Computed example of a mutant assay.
Amino acid sequence: MLGGRLSSGGHRADSLHQIATRTKGDALFRGIEIIILTPSPRKGQAKAETHKSVLKLIHILPKVDDTTRFIRIPRRTNYQYGNAPQILPHQAAMMKTKTPSFPQQSIDVLLSPRRERIEQAQSDLEIDGVISSSQLRRYYGLEPVDLAGRLLTVALIRPVASRPALEVQQTLVVSGAEIARLNDTDLNHKLTLTETRLMLGIEADPEVWQVNPKPSLKLNQPDGVWISEGQRVAIEADTGQYHMRIVDQKLDSFAQQGYASTIWGTGSEGRAKNIEKKLGSRYKVSFVRPSWWAA
C-alpha cells in the first residue's frame, strides 16, 4: 500500500502511529507493506522504525516539469486602474513613522504613477532575476500580470530550512529563461536576496548594487555587494542551508577581502540569534529577516 502527505512537512508521528496500529494486524496477515511518502527527511522516522514490520517512510520531494512550469505574461494595451500613484502623500508620511520604517526608495516608487512603477519593476527585475507577488504588491503596488512579457509561475517553496512545515505557495515572475530553469531552492535563495535589497532600500543600480560578483581570487564571495558611502558591504542571503562552520568561513573571507561589514539575511530569528551569539563578537555583522512571502 502506498500513501503519503507532501504538505506541512508530512505526517506527524501520532498520525503514523494511528496508521500503523489500525492496519498492522491485517497487513501482517496479508503480507502487505505500507509505504508512506514524506517531504521531510527526519520527521516521523523514529515512529516508523517502531512499526518497521509493516511501515516504511520514504523521503521524497515533488518535482516539477520545467517545460510546462512557466507561462509568458501577455502584453496589455490598457490598465484597469489607470495611471494613478499607489499611495498619497499623507499615507507616505504615515509609512515613515512605522517601526520598522518603510524604505524611502519604495515610498518614492509607490508615490509614482502606475506606468512609472511598472517601468521601475521591469528594470529592477533585470537585476534581481525573480520577484514574488507579495514583493510586487508591497514595494511597487503592482500585480504579476502587470509585468508584461515576463515569465510567470506558481511555486510551492519551503523558505526556511529549519521550519519544514512552513510552505509558501506564491506566484513568481522571473526575468528570463535562465532563471526559469532554476529549482525551487535556488529561486528561494534569489528571492531572499531580492527582499534584502528591497527592505534595505537599495537601488537596483550596478553602481551601488552588485549581485553574485565575480571573484578575483578563489575566495568565498557574498551573494550581493552594496556600495554605501564609498564602502563595500557584503550581503548574504541565508535560507538555513549552511552549517555554522560554513557561516564562519564566509564571514572570515568577507573580512579578509576588505568588506566594511556584512549584512546577513535569514528568515529565521533563531538562526540569526545563534550566529550572533557564536560569531558576532568576531565579525562586524548585522542581521535582517527578509521574509519575501510576507503580505
Rank of each mutant, 00 (worst) to 15 (best):
F70R: 01
P159F: 05
L136N: 01
D128N: 02
I58K: 01
Y242G: 02
T262S: 13
A155G: 01
G9D: 03
I34R: 01
L200C: 12
Y259G: 05
V145T: 04
G4L: 09
K43R: 15
D124W: 14
N188C: 15
Q221N: 07
G31E: 02
V54C: 01
R138W: 07
E236W: 14
L2P: 02
Y139W: 12
Q18P: 00
A161Q: 08
T67L: 08
A161L: 11
A161S: 10
E195S: 11
R117M: 09
T99V: 14
A295P: 15
E116F: 09
R245W: 02
G31I: 02
S15Y: 10
A260T: 11
P89M: 01
S132Y: 10
L55T: 09
G3H: 03
K98Y: 14
R181L: 10
Y283L: 05
Q86N: 06
P213N: 00
Q120H: 09
L152G: 00
E49I: 07
S40Y: 09
P41V: 06
A255C: 11
E119W: 06
A272D: 06
I34Q: 04
P89Q: 00
Q257L: 14
S7D: 10
A272C: 12
R42Q: 12
K98C: 06
R271Y: 09
A92Q: 04
I202F: 11
D186N: 05
D186H: 12
Q256S: 12
T21N: 01
Q120A: 14
P39H: 03
L28H: 02
L172F: 06
R150K: 14
E119Y: 06
L182Y: 13
Q86F: 15
A180C: 06
Q241M: 12
W226E: 03
T185K: 04
K278A: 13
L136K: 03
G230E: 07
I34A: 00
S216C: 05
A272M: 10
A204M: 04
K284M: 08
S106M: 14
L198Y: 10
F287Y: 13
P85G: 02
Q257R: 08
M1D: 06
E207T: 08
G267C: 10
I235N: 00
S133R: 07
V54H: 02
H51S: 06
Q120R: 13
P85L: 04
R163K: 13
L110R: 00
R150F: 15
F254M: 01
V145F: 14
T196W: 08
R12F: 15
A294K: 05
K218Q: 14
W292P: 04
N274S: 12
S281N: 09
S106T: 05
R163A: 13
K63A: 11
I179H: 01
M94P: 00
